[in-house]
């Protein structure tokens, strides 16, 4: 594992610090006016404001990300707003790790193992989707024209790192 991580040095692949994360699920109508501080995104999109982000995972299913410090406040606000309404809020902060992939060839490197069409027309900034990278599942979020954020199941992190580092080698990464 260590040498996998060592190969990761290159430009563009950066592990991101710990975050608070929640899975929020309910019937879509229930979530319409939920006080997140951000607008819940439409299908296959993520929205972000004030350090909080919501990523669409499916109808009525979102991954919420915020700073560790803001996590309890966010959870409390949601539970308060949704009290009495059927919903599920589950903390998954430690289930996932995140890394950022940036650079001109970021999409090409991702396409080494991810079959999504990452052309800006098909996958604009703000696009998010669950997909695969090689043999690992990923949640992909395009945060810039040449910048992606990946959410990875914790134990798949070394694999995803190693895979991206290997795929990035030809670009000097």
């Amino acid at each position: 594992m260590d040498d996998l991580l060592a190969r990761t040095a290159p430009l563009g692949i950066r592990p991101l610090p710990a975050m608070a994360r929640f899975m929020l699920q309910a019937r879509p109508a229930t979530l319409a006016g939920v006080p997140l501080g951000i607008v819940l995104p439409p299908a296959c999109r993520a929205t972000e404001a004030g350090g909080r982000a919501a990523l669409w995972l499916g109808p009525g299913a979102y991954l919420l990300r915020t700073t560790p410090a803001d996590g309890p406040a966010l959870a409390a606000a949601l539970e308060q707003a949704l009290a009495g309404q059927a919903h599920a809020l589950v903390e998954v902060s430690d289930r996932l790790t995140a890394l950022e992939l940036a650079g001109e060839e970021a999409a090409a490197v991702l396409n080494a193992g991810c079959p999504l069409d990452l052309d800006l027309a098909a996958c604009p900034v703000g696009f998010c989707a669950r997909s695969v990278l090689g043999k690992a599942g990923i949640l992909l979020w395009r945060t810039g024209a040449a910048r992606f954020l990946l959410e990875i199941e914790r134990s798949f992190t070394p694999y995803v790192h190693g895979f991206l580092a290997e795929a990035g080698r030809e670009f000097g990464g």
Binding site: S155, Y159, A167
Partner: peptide, 16 residues
């Protein structure tokens, strides 16, 4: 096979 060889042949999942 592509990258699927050595350490990348299969994800090696390790517990905390």
């Amino acid at each position: 096979a592509g990258a699927a060889r050595g350490d990348l042949f299969e994800p090696l999942r390790m517990t905390p």
